[in-house]
Amino acid sequence: MTLAFPNPSRSFDETRNAVRFIGHDGMFEVRFFIEAGALAKSDVAARRAGSLEAKCLSAFDALRTSIHDIARKAYAQGRRPSYTLTAADFH
């Protein structure tokens, strides 16, 4: 099976300072986090006024396709129950 993202839900995790989203590989749920720092560097986040949470969620929504592509690459390199994506993953 391949990693898919059928559920568009995402949330801001204050403890991790990251946006949390879920992928699915068949029946298996895979948790992903993308650090706020990785999203804050995007043009979308930079143009937005407001809280860090609002900026990160807005940037995530704007970059969703590329974030999912990067998540798939991370997952393909080694399957784990959760992944944290950083700014380095976007280079």
Rank of each mutant, 00 (worst) to 15 (best):
G50R: 06
A59L: 07
T84N: 00
D43I: 00
S58R: 09
Q77S: 02
R20M: 10
A62K: 15
Y75T: 02
S82G: 02
A46V: 06
A74C: 03
L63R: 15
L39Y: 05
A38D: 12
R47K: 11
S82C: 04
D61P: 06
G23E: 09
A40R: 12
A40G: 14
R72D: 01
I67W: 04
H68R: 12
K73T: 12
V19G: 11
L85E: 05
C56D: 03
S11I: 02
R80N: 02
E35G: 07
A71Y: 06
I70T: 14
H24C: 14
K55I: 00
R48P: 01
S51R: 09
P81R: 11
L52P: 04
F21I: 01
I34R: 11
K41D: 13
E29W: 08
S51Y: 04
A71W: 01
R47G: 02
S51G: 12
R64S: 03
R64D: 00
G50S: 11
A54C: 06
Q77C: 01
I70P: 02
S11F: 06
A18R: 05
R31I: 14
A46T: 08
S51H: 07
R16K: 14
G23I: 12
F32R: 10
A18W: 08
A71E: 00
C56Q: 00
L39N: 12
G50M: 10
A76L: 10
G26F: 12
V30A: 07
P81C: 04
E53V: 00
H68D: 02
A76Q: 11
R79M: 07
R48I: 05
M27C: 05
S11E: 14
K73D: 10
T65H: 12
S51K: 08
F33K: 08
F32N: 09
K55H: 02
T86R: 14
A71C: 03
A59N: 10
K41W: 07
R64F: 03
D61K: 11
A49W: 03
